Amino acid sequence: MITKRNFIAILPCLGSCFGAQADGFPDKPIRLIVPVAAGGSADLLGRLVGQQLSELYKQPVVVENKAGASGHIGAEYVSRAAPDGYTLLIGIQPVQASYRIYPKLNYDPGKSLDTLGIIGSFPSVVLVHPSVAANDISDLIKLAKASPAALNFGSAGPGSATHLGAELFLRDAGVKMTHVPYKGSSAASADLMGGQIQLMFENLPTAIGLMKSGKVRALAVTGAKRSPSLPNLPTVAEQGVPEYEFVGWYTVAAPLGLPPEVAKKLSADIHKIVHSPGLASRWADLGVTPIGGTVAQSNEYVHSEAVKYTKLIKDAQLGL
């Protein structure tokens, strides 16, 4: 029988055993779940980070796409995994910030996921099909006020960055449009290029490729200032909606309850990766501002974003 005295006596051993376990992490492959379909920004950035983690740890980092319910199928899967650091999640805004859109989830993202680091932030780009009679944001607002039923905007799904950026614009510009949700950004952008929808607030990392196709026209970036990747493209604020600003972000998250030393190690390594000189030019090309941060800083940032978007969901009555 373990007495109180015996338990106290073995505490130093438990501490040293735990330390050794953390020092040896990882000693087997890691699964990195991307909770959306392949081809979008989350998938692109997730694979970049996964590759860097694999090279750093000398272990395979297997990237798996588990799409559905705006990321919640994959996120719930991760939330129920063993909290040992071997199952990680690419965190996205629908999962970690705007989950109140889905009131009947089988898990609570705010209480079951731990944010280890912020990969980076980026603005969106307001893209329209060439058939839309708008060459700038002022034209788009006039068109929306004259014929609101004529404009449909696509998104990667309810609560996604591509949805939230548009909803903020509708609120701040005082206009109405019809939301057409898709199961992923790539499906929405395909219909935008085909003319089935008229516009999209696409994440900058993937918007750049769409712009190069010549099948869409860019009107503005959604950040507070112009993007170094698109220096000649003005912001929405510059074009008559001065209070408007929107940026998207992605994180690396894990099931709540990771051993503190494992969480600390993963967080430090994620910070090191996103700020590594080898990725600087890649981030610049994609228009991504790397962030990183500690576990505490990352969780605080995500919580503040959740508060902001919960208010938007309530004010705009976006709940499903």
Rank of each mutant, 00 (worst) to 15 (best):
I2D: 10
K4Y: 06
R5F: 08
P12E: 12
C13E: 14
L14P: 02
Q21K: 10
D23R: 11
F25V: 08
F25W: 13
P29V: 15
P29H: 13
I30H: 11
G39N: 06
S41L: 04
L44R: 10
L48A: 09
V49W: 00
Q52R: 11
L53G: 13
L56G: 07
L56A: 09
Q59L: 02
P60N: 14
V63C: 07
A67G: 09
A69Q: 07
H72M: 08
G74M: 03
Y77L: 10
V78N: 08
S79A: 12
R80V: 06
A81H: 04
A81D: 02
A82Q: 13
A82G: 11
Y86H: 15
I90R: 11
G91W: 04
I92W: 12
S98R: 00
S98V: 03
I101A: 15
K104I: 12
D108W: 04
K111P: 08
S112M: 08
G117L: 03
V126M: 06
A134S: 14
D136T: 05
I141Q: 08
G154F: 05
G154W: 00
A156D: 11
P158S: 15
S160V: 09
L170N: 01
G174S: 09
H179P: 00
Y182N: 08
Q196H: 12
L204C: 11
L204T: 07
M211W: 03
S213V: 10
R217A: 15
R217P: 06
T222H: 04
G223R: 00
R226K: 15
N232F: 04
L233C: 10
V236C: 14
V236S: 13
A237Y: 01
E238P: 00
E238N: 06
E243V: 09
F246R: 01
V247H: 06
W249R: 08
W249N: 06
W249V: 05
Y250W: 05
V252L: 10
A253T: 01
L256W: 02
P260H: 10
P260A: 15
A268P: 09
I270D: 04
H271E: 05
H271A: 10
H275F: 01
L279Q: 02
D285C: 04
L286W: 06
V288Q: 00
G293M: 01
T294C: 01
V295Q: 07
A296L: 01
A296E: 07
N299S: 10
Y301R: 15
H303M: 10
H303A: 15
H303S: 14
Y309K: 12
K311I: 06
D315T: 07
D315E: 14
D315S: 11
A316S: 13
